[in-house]
Design a protein around this nucleic acid. Sequence first.
DNA 1: ACAAAAGTGTTCTGTCTACACCCATGC
DNA 2: GCATGGGTGTAGACAGAACACTTTTGT
Lengths: 232, 232
Amino acid sequence: MEETGNYTYQYWRPAVTVDNVVFSFDGTHLNVLLIRRKNEPFKDKWAFAGGFLDENETLEEAARRELKEETGLAPKHFMEVSAFSELDRDPRGRTISVAFASVVRPTQTAVKAGDDAADARWFPVTELPMLAFDHEHIFRKALWMLRIGFLNAPIAFLLLDDIFTLPEMQRLYTDVYGRNFDRRNFQKKFLSSGLLTQVAQDEADRKSAHAPLFYRFNEGGYAEFRKKLWKL
Amino acid sequence: MEETGNYTYQYWRPAVTVDNVVFSFDGTHLNVLLIRRKNEPFKDKWAFAGGFLDENETLEEAARRELKEETGLAPKHFMEVSAFSELDRDPRGRTISVAFASVVRPTQTAVKAGDDAADARWFPVTELPMLAFDHEHIFRKALWMLRIGFLNAPIAFLLLDDIFTLPEMQRLYTDVYGRNFDRRNFQKKFLSSGLLTQVAQDEADRKSAHAPLFYRFNEGGYAEFRKKLWKL
DNA sequence: ACAAAAGTGTTCTGTCTACACCCATGC
DNA sequence: GCATGGGTGTAGACAGAACACTTTTGT
């Protein structure tokens, strides 16, 4: 047990783990990354990538490390979801877990299972298999945090390619919020928001007059957009 | 170390604590509860009430227990704020803390310092003293969560008396959001929201035609109010 | 008497909602 | 040729912002 200066403590300690709920968007559906566990407990079951906190790292650093080890992914943006501490959540003994949500772009979704993961795959959020531990619960809270994240930061654009179409973006919102948006109103809202700049015709390989138009996220328009959200 | 069935683990473990950011409202200002620490480290400094997680309790249960022990308070509504895990946040050694925010009504703000607390007092959120550990950081995040809470649940009414006036409620919002609201627009918004029901004249001890009117929270009007908030 | 607090309505503007048709592509 | 997907505009309802005067109480 550590000792620093002249205080010491000697208390019971739980094991502490981190779990990663990684989201991606393939142009059609919102997906989440699961690994198949190589070891007991829940061997061969699907779960979020994660593992034990080490002595020399923060929780977020642990989440990044474990994710890299088990799937090769290194998302830029992490959000803390919540801590989970039900007494019986881990059959190995008392364990609390802190879950993180993160997002990767479509171009960076290649995964290779490693370490404790026998397999790693993307699943549409509407078609998740049975999950190990209380990961079902973690997932619901992570999706909730993703919604909050969409409101408070331009997270959506971290899930889209650099260049994207409005119908793509709308499908993303549909999956994230679990409801439909009127197409014309959705377009009007974002086109008038200053968040998007249209990509020049020759840069985009648009096929015809009725093929979707391409847009890019406009960092500059974001400050104003955010201000509008925080009316009462 | 625990053993269950036939798996065992043997990993390094951090100490785990909980911290309580308790909010109250005295009719004029939003306040937060601090204790003066009886022990090292940060002896005699102001800090949030908290302590070590025990083996037989969840994090929220630990937060409730510690708060009760140190201040006598037992708020009904708790929200998890975040986990804090910077390597050097506790001079005693590696400790991660999970912070909770909670709210008490004006009638239930009587505190009596106990256990590890030499003193316990309410401070206006705009006049906090220097805080121990990284509690300044915890406070900022807790206030942020309170704002989110105001949006997602009728938390505001858990900070007000059963019967309250609109100017009181507006002062609460002013402190929580750190900005002013137009008085007439504020009233219009909430009066038309269905969230409030006016208290009968004879129940309220209204002093004159220009004394404030009294209202009560109307649980029934809440579902609709919430629906409106979740348009895109 | 003066300052501080609270009741009260209207106008303007912007945003949200609902809704239908045409064109192009792929099957 | 049929279903799918995507571009495009308008009218009505609602919500937010700005804004001034009067009454009462306490100092």
